[in-house]
């Protein structure tokens, strides 16, 4: 038992070391890693395409000015991924108030964003970094 415990501690220490090494800051911003304005625009255009073909999520966009959504979302992603932009849109709360977005529909939209990134050839690990940036904003978007 103590032998197993010792081995367990060693594995845990090894994992901790690996993790602290892995989470060290990348040198480039996520915006640069994505491929700058061109790629962000491609992702947003793919995302809009995904939304248009998803009945459940498109319902939320019936009253939306798609051109404005396109422009502001590009700015929004650019700013939060460390790009050289200024966000001139409304706050997340303002945009989503009254929509009463459920957890399930939020996650469905995350799936659409993942599809949009995959179609733009964004690598898996970089997709996760993008999701990690935007996931904390969920509380400003659902059930309001």
């Amino acid at each position: 038992m103590s032998f197993i415990k010792k081995r367990f501690s060693l594995i845990m220490i090894a994992m901790t070391l690996c993790l602290s090494a892995c989470v060290s800051q990348p040198e480039q911003s996520v915006y640069q890693q994505l491929g700058g304005q061109e790629k962000v625009t491609e992702i947003v255009q793919n995302f809009i395409y995904e939304i248009e073909f998803n009945e459940t999520i498109f319902d939320y966009f019936k009253e939306t000015d798609i051109q404005r959504f396109h422009d502001k979302l590009i700015e929004h992603i650019c700013v939060h991924t460390g790009g050289p932009c200024e966000y001139t849109g409304d706050t997340m709360e303002q945009v989503h108030t009254g929509m009463q977005i459920t957890e399930a529909d939020f996650n469905l939209t995350v799936d659409l964003l993942i599809n949009a990134m995959t179609k733009a050839n964004i690598p898996h690990r970089l997709q996760n970094r993008v999701l990690a940036i935007f996931a904390p904003m969920r509380k400003q978007m659902i059930y309001i």
């Binding site: 993790l19 690990r125 996760n128 970094r129 990690a132 996931a135």
Partner: peptide, 11 residues
């Protein structure tokens, strides 16, 4: 779950 926390992989 920590998104992207293990060298970009979800942990």
């Amino acid at each position: 779950v920590h998104l992207g926390a293990a060298g970009g992989y979800n942990l």
